[in-house]
């Protein structure tokens, strides 16, 4: 039975027909043509497929389609609005937070969730959040640098409260 499921995808209404246990990752990539989310392991270990489900980072390889009915999903495509890169993506570029790029979409989405919750995170918070998103290239140090550059900018500009960034709650 192929049922229709409706949800909000990157701020727009979306509707997909498929089996209830279809993986959200496949639905995004195959049915909706959003190939920014990557498949690394297919078992929840690598975080390359990370998307935001109701504002929390989750592995889209482990989310069945029938559970996203009515939910709000943000993918890497929704974080870079159109052709404009976000502030976070810009510091990744300037600080060398991306090398081969395989982990980068998942990493950016994971860090988006972190910054929504902790606008100026500590090193320990950063380490804990990215521990489920594996990077084989950077050794993480440059990723941490990128976040710190962004955090320093924010502190300098006095933008440190979550409400200032238009986060719509849990």
């Amino acid at each position: 039975m192929s049922t229709k499921y409706r949800f909000t995808l990157n701020g727009q209404p979306a509707e997909v027909a498929g089996p209830p246990m279809a993986r959200l990752l496949d639905v995004l990539r195959r049915d909706l043509g959003l190939t920014g989310s990557k498949e690394g392991c297919g078992e929840g270990e690598c975080g390359a497929c990370t998307v935001l489900l109701n504002h929390e980072a989750v592995c889209s390889c482990l989310v069945p389609l029938f559970q996203v009915e009515g939910a709000s999903i943000t993918t890497i495509e929704g974080i870079s609005a159109g052709d404009e890169v976000s502030e976070l993506q810009r510091v990744f570029a300037t600080e060398g937070g991306a090398q081969c790029g395989a982990c980068t979409p998942g990493m950016i989405v994971t860090i988006r969730a972190l910054l929504d919750r902790h606008p100026t995170p500590t090193r320990a918070q950063v380490r804990e959040y990215v521990s489920g998103t594996l990077c084989r290239c950077t050794g993480y140090e440059r990723i941490f640098r990128a976040i710190e550059v962004l955090t320093d900018q924010r502190l300098a500009e006095g933008v440190a409260s979550p409400s200032a960034k238009g986060v719509s709650g849990e």
Partner: peptide
Amino acid sequence: IGAAQIQNR
């Protein structure tokens, strides 16, 4: 348990 993405689900 797991990491953030796992704990969220």
